[in-house]
């Protein structure tokens, strides 16, 4: 375990995450023919949220949101420390359950529907993330991120199907259109701000912060596919993220039915087919 890396993640991830969000907004604006906000806009936004008054529907919201942030940080920290990737995924799910419960606790129609949709999103992406971890295990024979990182061959070479499936659910996780069902970065959603509707001021700031941590963690997950060569990996990250922005700007939001079906079908076909082939190959020619 590299506790130092975990510490670095805790300190740097908000900076990286905020910058990524800023670049995202800038590129999005350019794609729409606008100038867009300053690069540091996400930091201003979160800074502002912490300056605002705290309003609540019920005090228990605090507990859920703080727990959400804490467990996102725990799962990300564990990931960067090189821990067991399945445990990372479970902690990650736990964190999101706290977000959902926070939304439920306010008993507000909008956040209630947001919570239900967030749950649908969770079940849409979770199988694919677990299959990705399984795929990495089949190639590297280890569930530890540290060992997967140390692989001296490109994982993507063995896991192309898994990678495509992962990109699919990445769109859900980054809250990008067409899968931004539960809450959206875009203005005006049919359920107001969905799962985050009732969080405001500093509490909403924590949600945003958690989202940055989460994004850095997800980028780290993609990095694993290319970990044998850091330069190519960073290039791949840039391309993947750019592709996500393009998708975000070219698709309209779909229904939850389509979200669930498409992500499960992709996970089922691409992910499982990939794993099946690996399984067959490892039975014939051990890697």
């Amino acid at each position: 375990m590299h506790m130092g890396n975990a510490l670095l993640f805790i300190l740097l991830a908000p900076i990286v995450g905020g910058l990524v969000a800023g670049i995202d907004r800038k590129i999005t604006a350019r794609m729409q023919g606008r100038v867009g906000p300053p690069l540091l806009q996400p930091f201003y936004d979160v800074g502002k949220l912490f300056e605002k008054e705290q309003i609540l529907v019920t005090p228990s919201q605090n507990f859920y949101i703080t727990s959400y942030l804490v467990f996102i940080v725990v799962s990300g920290g564990l990931f960067f420390a090189g821990g067991d990737i399945l445990l990372v995924i479970f902690a990650f799910t736990l964190a999101h359950i706290f977000l959902v419960l926070g939304a439920y606790s306010s008993y507000s129609p909008y956040s209630f529907i947001g919570a239900e949709r967030e749950l649908i999103q969770i079940i849409a992406y979770e199988p694919m993330i677990i299959l990705s971890a399984v795929g990495m295990y089949m190639v590297t024979r280890s569930f530890y991120v540290a060992d997967i990182m140390a692989a001296e061959f490109p994982l993507i070479y063995y896991l192309p199907g898994i990678f495509i499936g992962f990109l699919m659910v990445l769109t859900i996780k980054l809250r990008k259109s067409p899968f931004d069902l539960s809450t959206s970065h875009h203005a005006h959603q049919e359920i107001v701000k969905g799962v985050t509707t009732e969080f405001s001021g500093p509490m909403f700031g924590l949600v945003e912060l958690a989202h940055w941590y989460e994004n850095v963690f997800l980028l780290g997950f993609i990095y694993l596919f290319f970990a044998w060569n850091p330069l190519i990996a960073i290039g791949a990250l840039a391309i993947v993220y750019f592709a996500e922005i393009v998708i975000d700007n070219t698709f309209s939001r779909v229904t939850w039915q389509l979200t669930l079906k498409s992500s499960w079908i992709i996970a089922g076909f691409m992910g499982l087919a990939n794993l099946g082939i690996l399984y067959y190959l490892s039975a014939v020619v051990p890697l």
Partner: peptide
């Protein structure tokens, strides 16, 4: 004002549609 011609997001302005997030 939100359209590319005026682009108020230059000033960090976002139309949230949610009073609990708005200033």
């Amino acid at each position: 004002c939100l359209s590319p011609l005026y682009d108020v997001e230059r000033f960090g302005i976002i139309n949230t549609g949610n009073p609990k997030h708005a200033d």
